[in-house]
Design a binder for these strands. Sequence first.
DNA 1: CTTATACTTGACCCCCCATTCAATTTTACT
DNA 2: AGTAAAATTGAATGGGGGGTCAAGTATAAG
Lengths: 195, 195
Amino acid sequence: MARPVEFDENKVLNSAMEQFWREGYEASSVQKLLDCTGINRGTLYNSFGDKDTFFKSCVDQYHKIIDKQIESSLKNPELNAWDSINAYFDEAVLNISNKHRSMGCLLVNSLCESINYDKDMKKVVRGSLATIRKAIVARLKEAQKKSKLKKGVSVEFAADVLMNTLHGVRVNSRDGKNNRQLKELIKHSINTLKK
Amino acid sequence: MARPVEFDENKVLNSAMEQFWREGYEASSVQKLLDCTGINRGTLYNSFGDKDTFFKSCVDQYHKIIDKQIESSLKNPELNAWDSINAYFDEAVLNISNKHRSMGCLLVNSLCESINYDKDMKKVVRGSLATIRKAIVARLKEAQKKSKLKKGVSVEFAADVLMNTLHGVRVNSRDGKNNRQLKELIKHSINTLKK
DNA sequence: CTTATACTTGACCCCCCATTCAATTTTACT
DNA sequence: AGTAAAATTGAATGGGGGGTCAAGTATAAG
């Protein structure tokens, strides 16, 4: 017995997510968020809360993308450990639009912004990054069991190396590095861990 | 025949640089810059120009630090190629205060902010990063001449790997990774290139 | 001591920031 | 048709954003 919502929540979240992703938290004014989502001022506050809350929802939305990428790569049972890790980098970095690639990573960008000093935000961003690492760790354990992990390299350290490469690549993406160069960097990093 | 300046230009630039470094361009309001530098509003605009110009000067100031680090490591004639590269990472990442380390890198942070879309800013930030890479390339060429570079690895690619590791480490720094972990990541990356 | 020159100061400007809210519209149930 | 519930709307609010400027102040040259 109430008026139904007119906007598509998913579309709104995606548009806002892209805005935050491209320009960061600070530079994304509420007005810009209204413009890119097409919703009205009051609607935003009524349905999504204040800017902070909205941002967190957008990070959640971003995390959904990550989850999908993990699902079809790292958690794909048809792939062996290293193939799945390769597949993840493909999903996350290489096989995406130039537009998105040049925007880097919302999580990395947020770490590098002042919003990183907010306890809640930190928790959300770190949580999302931890999910990626966890999925990588699972596959590295598998690789280790099958003696496919380089000797003397621990699973935890290998995960750190891969995450570090991922972060570096994300920064380099924002610096305009092309796909070929990023691919080489990823390939090299993985090769240093593979047996 | 004019009144002499009262502020110490270098101190002002250092304080403002730290503010921009810690919180980024967008979150650093002019008021915050006045507070941390101790100078007056008019003085800032008279002596340093508008916020954009001031920011560029602060990046220049940051670049001076980088230059010093390069001078005592990568350009140190008493060190061989790989020792000098190790020394650079020490100077830039490991042997600095926890406070500074946790702030990451002003250049990387700027790449990840919306200011990255400003042509002038891009030029300044990229220029500074290019200086680091150039100094690394010089040493890698030396290593290659002395057959200390791993076979099949080009100087340019090795430089890309090191820069990517540096970027990754800078993001991880802002994520709170400790010195020991960063050291391991750097060591590993260098070892993959060294012969 | 006077004067030209530059630095310093903070009040002031307009604009856009995030946020609120009362009025309006749209629906579903009775 | 009437009404309760929720969504929508955009004007309004207070505050802080970046930037300006006229007045005051300190210096060195003449």
